[in-house]
């Protein structure tokens, strides 16, 4: 069972602003950096609710 971390107050990246970079593991465990993923052209970044 997962304990929900308390919410913090981040900021939604706004239109025309530069989104902050991040590094996260992909489904094979390999680290992927946003700035690398986007470097080759526009990137569609999809956040979804997850598996249930």
């Amino acid at each position: 069972m997962t304990i929900a971390p308390p919410p913090n107050h981040g900021t939604l990246p706004k239109l025309g602003q530069q989104a902050p970079d991040f590094a996260l593991p992909d489904s094979t465990g390999a680290a992927r950096r946003l700035s690398d993923l986007v470097a080759g052209g526009p990137l569609v970044l999809l956040f979804y609710r997850g598996y249930w």
Binding site: M1, T2, I3, A4, P5, P6, P7, N8, H9, G10, T11, L12, P13, K14, L15, G16, Q17, Q18, A19, P20, D21, F22, L34, S35, V38, A39, G40, G41, P42, L43, V44, L45, L46, F47, Y48, R49, G50, W52
Partner: peptide, 28 residues
């Protein structure tokens, strides 16, 4: 959380559904 698309009220805390298109310099 940093991107403010966190929904702590469901399923142990999940992402709100969101779509971005980013330019190669990460401009939204």
């Amino acid at each position: 959380q940093e991107w403010d698309i966190y929904n702590p009220k469901e399923k142990g805390g999940i992402a709100r559904p969101a779509v971005f298109i980013l330019a190669p310099d990460r401009t939204v």
